[in-house]
Amino acid sequence: MRLTVRLFAFFRDGRFRERECDYPEGTTVREIITSLGIDPGEVGVIMLNSRHCSQDQVVHQGDKLAIFPVIGGG
């Protein structure tokens, strides 16, 4: 199945900003994070289709996944 993965801040360094990726059915967000060489402990916020989700969330065909490190501002 195919979904869009978007990375932000320093997660983009040496990786990508946005990419269409293929993963098997039943893949979790954590598995995607690990497959990208990102330490799950460094992840601050994950949004699936613009809603917050956990790393245990299973993704589906056509989803848009956004992965952010720990960031803040204001």
Binding site: G44, V45, S50, A66, I71
Partner: peptide
Amino acid sequence: PISQALGTYGTNVLVNIINEA
């Protein structure tokens, strides 16, 4: 870690995450 990100991207690091939300 937020202090560290603020020193790199400034408060403007928020544009993309608030847009995503």
